[in-house]
Amino acid sequence: MGKVRPAYIKRVGRALMEQYPDRFSDDFEHNKQVVGQLVEGASKRVRNRIAGYITSQVKRLKEASEESVKTSEEGGS
C-alpha cells in the first residue's frame, strides 16, 4: 500500500515537475534544496513532504522507463 499524501502536496509537486523537469533527481537532499528555492514561504515540513513526493515520482518514472527499454530490447532481438 502506498503512502497517502494530501492533495496540496501532490498538486504543488506535479506543478514543479512540469515547470522544472530537469532540476529534480532521485536524490531527496538535492530535491529538498531545489524545492526550498522554488517554493516561497513553505515551512520545513511542507518543503520536505513536497521533496519526498517528487523524489518518489522521479524514481517511479525512472523505473518505468528502464522497464520499457528492457522489454523493447527483449522483443526486438
Rank of each mutant, 00 (worst) to 15 (best):
L38A: 04
F24N: 06
T55M: 06
T55A: 03
R47W: 04
S56G: 10
D26C: 05
S72V: 11
N31W: 08
S56K: 08
E40M: 09
R47Y: 01
R23M: 12
N31A: 07
R5L: 11
R5P: 01
Y20A: 04
E67V: 10
G76R: 14
A7D: 10
Q37E: 15
E63T: 02
S72N: 08
A64C: 01
S77L: 09
S25E: 14
R60Y: 02
P21Q: 08
A15S: 13
M1V: 07
V58G: 04
R14N: 15
F24R: 06
A64Y: 07
L16R: 05
M1D: 09
A7S: 13
F28P: 02
H30S: 14
I50A: 03
R49I: 00
T71D: 07
T55E: 08
S56W: 00
S56L: 00
E67Q: 10
A51K: 06
D22Q: 15
R5S: 09
E29S: 14
G2S: 10
E29D: 12
A64F: 05
S65Q: 15
G52R: 01
A42Q: 04
K10D: 02
R23I: 08
K32E: 12
R60M: 05
S56T: 04
G76Q: 14
R49N: 11
E18A: 11
S43G: 15
S72C: 05
V12C: 04
R45I: 08
R60E: 12
Q37K: 12
D27H: 14
S56I: 00
Q33F: 09
V12I: 15
V46P: 01
G75V: 04
V34G: 10
A64E: 15
V46H: 03
K44Y: 07
E29A: 13
V39G: 05
V35C: 07
A15F: 00
R60G: 00
K44E: 13
N48V: 02
I50S: 02
E67Y: 09
Y8T: 14
Q19H: 06
D26W: 06
N31E: 09
E18H: 09
I9K: 05
V46F: 15
I50Q: 04
G75K: 08
R60A: 12
R11C: 05
S25K: 09
R49D: 12
R23V: 10
G52L: 02
L38F: 02
I9C: 06
H30G: 11
I9Q: 04
K62E: 14
V34D: 12
H30V: 15
R14K: 11
N48W: 02
V12S: 03
V12P: 01
K59G: 00
